[in-house]
Design a protein around this nucleic acid. Structure first.
Lengths: 251, 251
DNA sequence: TAGATTGTTAATCGATTAACAATC
DNA sequence: TAGATTGTTAATCGATTAACAATC
């Protein structure tokens, strides 16, 4: 309503107002699927093909892509390379984002070594830790630097993304320092709820929460009906060489 | 409708039909907040207190808790210990779940060392890898074992949760082996979409996807209006010693 | 032209939120 | 009893899905 009045008449201009969050979260999945198809030498794919590769249904995929524009051809499908570029551009990974990792324990180590940081689009510019015993240690082709250098590094390398891999204790303080230094996006692996001012985005990765969600569902499986689909369920003791299963079950 | 007919009349029996997924995903956050309050010696907390600690609003928290039952006292709040136990029980972490980790690279290493696996409720019973060079390596008080032993271990230790920290390539095969061995919940860190049969739950943790979601929003910040809240925005060049910011902005 | 597949509409479903009656 | 706070209702919002007209 308020919005309609400020819109000129005519066909809706795509991307006029932002893309839904649920869609944004799936774009990287589509990007990866397209990269895989491209690597297999596939030049064209239907929404059905793409949806299968991305693990969603095709209606959802088409709806998601429709927020970006009309990049497909009716009766044909999508050009893999073209769509891949359009999505990469929309996400913002056609440019490189400078990233710092703070807290070089086991997890920080692992992320520092993570080759290419998964996909292109990100560049680790510094590994930081406050522990003098760690400062100076080489990891791959980088050296751990003192957390005190944060501000200088953020300024020099225009860092906009910070990854927090400290323990829970110092995480909020590290977060505050990152924000004060000018970092506006944070990926938090520490098991705490961090508070940030408006304008700063924060995402959280939490192993123990993920496991607990699985445990919840697991608990409900052992309980009642929801056991595996196989009609006669082997008693799980003694049998080591089960006959192959799946013939004639259901449709 | 179909459901109403199978329900007896009278007051709704809580937890009669499952808890919404969005709520399930927040229960571990509440559990952690309650543990923190408990550790600070706080015995009672209002929904407002709890919501603040968990980073949600109080209406949502009360709605979420209402799916579990009525564990609060009107006019008073919630007994921290009591609610903590109720949530732990609901999630299923009052018992211990046996976990195997498959793929002992950097990340597998990091998770293996992750003290107590974040929260109680989980017990790592084996670290597995197919690489003979890794088998036998000690990590903490565990030893890396051959992936070929998977089936025996799952059977012996009643493992229901598997964590996949292999590269993308072998992940689907590892997943299939886990499922065939009887694992019914999987936490996947490999950057691929895994397919599992019905009855198996799978969750995915994906660093590169998280970073891309941040990049999407970051790109839109640098663009237009959505710049930081500070009125006069330093031009970001030359200035090295900004005056402290935040006095008299907004309210 | 006939067949295939997109992009969009509209219905449905689930999650969030504000407000408040119930009740300690 | 008066004040505080829960548990629940109902309105709203956003996401998913099926279906199909548009169009290659």
């Amino acid at each position: 309503m308020t919005r309609a009045s400020s819109r000129r008449p005519g066909p809706p201009t795509r991307t006029e107002r932002g893309i839904p969050e649920a869609t944004v979260a799936r774009l990287p999945v589509y990007l990866r699927a397209l990269t895989a198809l491209s690597d297999s030498g596939i030049a064209t794919a239907s929404s059905e093909d793409l949806a299968t590769a991305a693990g969603v249904n095709s209606a959802k995929l088409r709806k998601d892509l429709s927020y970006l524009g009309s990049y497909g051809t009716r009766g044909v499908g999508y050009d893999v390379e073209y769509l891949r570029y359009q999505i990469a551009r929309e996400i913002g990974v056609t440019q490189d984002w400078a990233v710092v990792i703070v807290g070089i324990g086991n997890l920080g180590h692992a992320l520092a070594n993570y080759s290419g940081f998964g996909t292109r689009g990100f560049r680790i510019v510094a590994l930081l830790d406050a522990d003098p015993n760690l400062v100076g240690e080489r990891i791959g082709d980088m050296e751990v630097r003192d957390f005190a250098e944060l501000e200088a590094i953020v300024k020099a390398d225009r860092v906009s993304i910070g990854v927090i891999t400290t323990p829970a204790g110092p995480a909020q303080e590290v977060c505050d320092r990152l924000v004060a230094a000018g970092v506006t996006s944070i990926l938090n692996f520490a098991p705490v709820v961090l508070s940030v001012p408006d304008g700063v985005d924060i995402r959280k990765v939490d192993l123990s929460i993920e496991l607990q969600i699985l445990a919840y569902h697991e608990q409900r499986k052992s309980g009642e009906a929801a056991l595996p689909q196989v009609p006669e369920l082997p008693a799980m003791n003694g049998l080591t060489d089960l006959p192959s299963v799946g013939g004639g079950v259901g449709a």
